[in-house]
Amino acid sequence: MYKINTIEPLWWGLFGAGGFIAAFLLPVHMLVNGMLIPLGAAPQEAYSPQRLAALVSHPVVKLYLLALVSLPLFHWAHRFRYLLFDLGIHGGRTAIAFLCYGAAIVGTVVAAWTLVRV
C-alpha cells in the first residue's frame, strides 16, 4: 500500500456520500415529511405524531437521521470550499477549509445532540 500526504479522501468520501443522500433521499423526505404529511395528503393515522416519535426513538432511525442531516452538510462544505476557489479566492485556503468543514462538524454535533435528546 502507499501513503499520501493528505486527508482529502476523508472530505471527498463524505462529499460523495452526502451528494448521494442529497440527490436521492432528501427529496423524498422533503416531499413526504415536508409537504405530503403537513398538507394532509398522507394517511394521518400512519404518520401521527405519536407514531413518528416512537419511530425516531429507535437507535437505528436516529443513526439514519444523523447521516441524513450530517452528510449533506459535508457535501455543501466541500462544494462551497471549491466554489470559493473557483471564484478566484485563493488566499487563506486553509482557513476556508477549516471554516467549511468546521461548520459541517458543528452541524453534525448539533444534530447528534438533538437526536440524543428526543
Partner: peptide, 21 residues
Amino acid sequence: GRNERMPVIGSSEGIWECTYI
C-alpha cells in the same frame, strides 16, 4: 507501478486541487 504513482497523484497538489470544472 501503481503504488509509486499514487502518492504523487493522490497528494494535495494532485487530484484534490481539481474542482471539476
